[in-house]
Computed example of a mutant assay.
Amino acid sequence: MTMPFAEVIGDPISQSKSPAIHRFWLEKLGIEADYRASRVSEADVADYLAERQADPDWRGCNVTMPLKQKVQPHLSSVEEPATSIGAVNTIYPAFDRLLAGTNTDAAGFLEPLTKHLQAPHLFRMARILGAGGAARAIAHALARENFTLVIAARRLEQAADLIASLPQTTQHHAVSLDHFAQTTDFAFDDRQGLLDLVINASPLGMRGKSPLVFDWSHAPPGAIAYDIVTDPLETDFLRAAREAGHETIDGLAMLIGQAAEAFRLFFGSPPPRQHDDELRALLTA
């Protein structure tokens, strides 16, 4: 007997926590469906989507590295904010099973910042470390929330290209990632009424990747440290931020937030977020 299912695709994919998240919610809601992980290479994208589109049990997929831009030519439509961001992380069969792509990373990233964003500020600034697919979603989300952005990348032209894609509501800045590696004696002004973020939106610091070198003398007093890396969950970046007295947000916050948006599209029901503490315990066991 078959049942409805959704999945996450990418290459590699075995490390993904998405199946555990969606299966947890499906069980809590008593929905007879499944969520899987499927390894799909760049060369296999077209065949994969054609096969899944023809499967009436398939409810859609989340898309991870390196496919967020590769899938777009094979979709019937790309919705906002994916169009502006230039990256798709969620695909679902819409009317007549035509494939639609969207992006839930932006909403997922903003979710744990909701209380901060509801307050008025004289000025908002975010230092974003990285300029890849996840950084694009984060930068577009923050630009719409009236942040001035400093985008730091190992390749300066990549940071500049990202800035050029943003809605020009304010002036943004591109710098080399090395800029933040050395200690600074910059004297920050009074941050009362300001909102400052320092975000690792790169794979640096992830298990098996190069370390992220960031000196916390570059962070204004009261800045919030946000790392989207989920393995390990307690990164050196967050540990050093906490030791320097900063509030921290870990990668599970964004991962669960973006999954919640996708779950609604796949299974037609909001996930039971009252169980987030239990879900976090499951994911970190």
Rank of each mutant, 00 (worst) to 15 (best):
A94L: 10
F95Q: 10
D96I: 03
D96R: 14
R97N: 12
L98I: 08
L99M: 15
A100D: 03
A100S: 15
A100K: 12
G101C: 12
G101F: 03
G101D: 05
T102A: 05
T102G: 03
T102R: 00
T104C: 02
T104Y: 02
T104L: 01
D105N: 14
A106C: 10
A106R: 00
A106Y: 00
A106D: 04
A106G: 09
A107N: 08
A107V: 12
A107L: 11
G108N: 06
G108W: 00
G108P: 08
G108V: 12
F109V: 01
L110F: 13
L110V: 13
E111V: 10
E111A: 15
E111W: 13
P112R: 10
L113C: 12
L113Y: 09
L113I: 09
L113V: 09
L113T: 04
L113H: 09
T114K: 12
T114V: 09
K115G: 11
K115C: 12
H116Y: 12
H116C: 06
H116D: 11
Q118K: 14
A119M: 13
P120E: 10
H121R: 10
L122W: 05
L122A: 14
R124I: 11
R124P: 02
R124C: 05
M125W: 06
A126K: 02
R127C: 15
R127F: 13
L129H: 02
G130W: 00
G130N: 03
A131T: 10
A131S: 15
G132V: 13
G133Q: 04
G133N: 08
G133I: 02
G133H: 03
A135V: 02
A135E: 01
A137N: 05
A137R: 00
A137D: 01
I138K: 01
I138F: 03
I138Q: 02
I138S: 01
A139N: 08
H140R: 08
A141Y: 04
A141S: 11
L142D: 00
A143P: 07
A143R: 05
R144V: 03
R144Y: 08
E145P: 10
E145C: 14
E145D: 06
N146M: 11
N146A: 14
N146W: 08
F147C: 05
T148G: 02
V150D: 02
A152M: 05
A152P: 03
A152W: 00
A152S: 13
A153L: 04
R154M: 09
R154S: 09
